[in-house]
Design a protein around this nucleic acid. Sequence first.
RNA 1: GCGCCAGUAGCUCAGCUGGAUAGAGCAACGCCCUUCUAAGGCGUGGGCCGAGGGUUCGAAUCCCCCCUGACGCACCA
Length: 559
Amino acid sequence: MDFKKIVCENFKTEAMTSDELYASLMPTQDCKNGDVCLPCFRFAKALRKSPAAIAEDFKDQVNTGGAVEKCEVAGGYLNFFLNKAYITRAVLDECAQKGDTYAPLSRLNKTICIDYSSINIAKPFHIGHLLTTVIGGSLYRVYKYLGYDVVGINHLGDWGTQFGKLIVAYKKWGDDEDIEKRKVRALLDLYVRFHKEAEKDESLNDEGRYWFKQIEDGNPEALAIFEKFKEITLKEVAKVYDKLGVKFDSYAGESFYNDKMQPIIDELQNKGLLTESEGAKVVDLEEWGMPPCLIVKKDGATLYATRDLAAAKYRHDTYDFDKCLYVVAYQQNLHFKQVFKVLELLGYDWADRLVHVPFGMVSLEGSTLSTREGKVVFLDDVLDTAVAKVGDVMEQKQGKRDEETAKKVGVGAVIFYALSSARIKDLVFSYDKALSFEGETGPYLQYAHARCRSVIAKAGEVKGKFSAGALDSAEAYEVVKLLNAFDQTVREAAEKYEPSVISHYLITLAKAYNKFYIDNRIVTDDNDVTFTRLALTKAVAAALKNGLKLILIDAVDKM
RNA sequence: GCGCCAGUAGCUCAGCUGGAUAGAGCAACGCCCUUCUAAGGCGUGGGCCGAGGGUUCGAAUCCCCCCUGACGCACCA
């Protein structure tokens, strides 16, 4: 339901069109001022009257007694009070229709590509990848819900000299048994060791370059080792992705675009965009206030930007996307600005459908994360710790553990921690905060949901009819209004590419329901009252469950 | 130096497409479980919304300038 629309339907005036009125209306901040208000200050000059007098005039033109129960003038505001019983009933009816599991909104036949997570082969999946993975994963579900076809792309970092270096390290110090056992962690050790040794022995770097060239040239031995590293890494991260509930439709990474770059380079050349500078081939972007975009290195090798140009074109040709999102840290702001501009200069009209969705830097209590120095916090460890802690709390509170529940609540706590504030904010990772279960946290939402389910289970089948009086309170009405805002909130999250919008909404909803719950008994002697309050409780449980799903959290029925 | 982002309570944040007394959580203190899950609820204290100008009937929100911090700026990704 659209409250502003309801007001428009009941308020016709000569002073402005219905559209203008709609645009001027706004929700109130405080329920004592009604549901919707019209600030009248802006009309004062044209109408040569005080805002309060204008509000008084308008008031007489409002059709009250129906959906708009009454309106009042307060200062320069005209406040509209909707009929609570009517709204409550209508909203709860809508919720009942949506049921326990919300179906996606109507199919749009539009495709959104989301490039996210994009891990590096042979590197650990650490908390630095947490944000891109959960932001992208959440947006994936948000767009699905809104009716889009979504393509999740894991743009693997599977190309570069580093892999030559790793082969050298593997051949020199590699231990298959250790790798079999510790997987990526063993590979990381090799990588770290290589850099340590290379400080003493410069020639190792040359060897690294040599072996990377072997990969490029298709040397079977080099390829076999490389493929093995890739397989180990993918298998390992698949477990984490599984825990987080994110999925990808494509793992086309850097190596995939290897043979797709030359055509782009040729095209740049043919369109006269490529200039030679200090031995490298670049696209000059000075006119747009940017440094040149490097396309080909002095030695003929391609670069990051070259690959992203090829990838963008490939994705466009393959998926015909309506939008293509890049969920990549804000460090890359300039890079994407350049790449998008170059595509525009190439004449691709779809260049404006590319969107960089930047997010903040993750650091570790002051110090930055460093793979090379081995200074990392493995995401897997964080998740396991969270799950274990939830298990402990369960045991302490109810004397028994339930692993399935602990997993959902524990992992959910970490995900919520990552998605609770605006993505652009830097995140100083803290175990304490990630594993906090009180206040505005994942477990708080889980708890509110479980509590709803518990009441619903206890009540059983209740035969009764809707009773407006059962929900005639400010707390109940607040909940109803929030329930009504679900879809609109999801749309806002999509528009802003901001899952935290949903996180905040869910906290607000849970808080509002908790307040209602404390003050109102759900299961009572009066069947009509029970029936009605149960309808609200069911609606809240569904909104929480489906909202949590949009931020990658599985709701639990008990905890 | 240039560019870009951020600065709101002790800490972490919401509010930012201008509207009514600036909101939460954490931390501190004090209450509330013989009744549907206390991982909950209620209360108390805590703010020159980084500084200064401007626009406006009205600015945390828009504009200018400055300060602080993060990030980026040529062959890594």
